[in-house]
Simulated assay, not measured.
Amino acid sequence: MTAVIGLKRKVFAELLGTALLLATVIGSGIMAERLAGGNVAIALLANTLATVGGLYVLIEVFGPLSGAHFNPAVSAVMVLRGELHARELLPYIGAQLVGALLGAWLAHAMFDLPIIELSSKVRTGTGQWLAEAVATAGLLLVILRAPAPRASIMVAAYIGTAYWFTASTSFANPAAAFGRMFTNTFAGIAPSGVPGFVIAELIGAAIGLALHMAFEPGKQPVQHATRQR
């Protein structure tokens, strides 16, 4: 019974944390676009700053509860490393996907937009997919190699940086791609582009894990206090 209660608590933390992360990403994108007067660079900068700050806080808050993955690719890697039990993977992923959808709806509700809509913003092509693979590989490498006390700030800083050096603005998260499909705003992605993003992100996660293992061959997995996005 205790194990069941513990899993429910972790799954709820993943759902709530992912919802708040997507509300931050989408909501700040809406606000930024409204205030930037058509200047896309300013809008992206504002969206980046809000995401970095929000992500740092969410990892700090939910890390001790669930690991603060908020990301199916991260959860899958943690299962492979033995840091998350295999039976917890599907509940984690389900919570992350539901949380991402709820986060998109919450952002729309706060800005008086239609709750249910699909994005028409096309994001596809080789450059975008390569960018997502690079962004996700880097994210996993940071997560796996960051010293535990500095993991939150390092992950948030990396995502903020990747907003600008990747062509895709660094989704680096299948749940984020799924949630952003339900907003036709600054942060949205058309449903047709989501499969390519998710495949690239999963490939990137595998590359990030492989790079980490290459640096420390044969070393036992190290437990980290916080995990991300």
Rank of each mutant, 00 (worst) to 15 (best):
A3E: 15
V4I: 14
G6R: 06
L7V: 12
K8W: 13
R9F: 05
V11H: 02
F12R: 00
A13C: 07
E14S: 12
L16F: 06
L16Q: 01
A19K: 01
L22E: 08
T24G: 09
I30N: 00
I30G: 01
R34T: 13
V40A: 07
V40F: 15
A41W: 04
T48Y: 01
L49A: 10
A50M: 03
V52G: 04
V52L: 08
G54Q: 10
I59D: 07
I59H: 04
E60H: 09
E60F: 11
G63Y: 01
L65D: 11
G67E: 06
A68N: 07
F70G: 02
N71M: 11
A73S: 04
V74S: 10
S75W: 04
R81N: 12
L84M: 14
H85E: 14
A86E: 12
A86V: 05
E88N: 07
L89S: 03
P91G: 10
P91M: 08
Q96P: 06
L101D: 12
L102P: 10
L106T: 09
L106E: 09
A107Q: 02
A109H: 10
F111A: 13
L113K: 00
I115W: 03
I116W: 03
L118N: 15
L118A: 10
S119V: 05
S120L: 15
K121S: 11
W129L: 08
A131I: 02
A131L: 05
E132I: 01
T136W: 04
T136C: 09
A137D: 10
L139I: 11
L140R: 00
L141A: 09
V142E: 10
I143F: 07
R145A: 14
A146Q: 06
A146S: 02
P147I: 09
A148Q: 15
P149R: 02
P149N: 11
R150Y: 10
S152D: 14
M154K: 01
M154Y: 06
M154Q: 06
A156I: 11
I159A: 12
A167K: 04
T169F: 05
A177Q: 03
F178R: 00
F182L: 06
F186H: 03
A187E: 09
A187S: 08
A187N: 01
I189F: 05
P191C: 08
S192K: 09
G193H: 08
V194I: 12
I199H: 03
A200Y: 03
G204I: 03
A206L: 05
L209F: 08
A210I: 11
A210Q: 03
A210H: 10
L211Q: 04
L211M: 14
L211C: 08
M213H: 09
F215Q: 14
Q220K: 11
Q220T: 13
V222K: 13
Q228V: 05
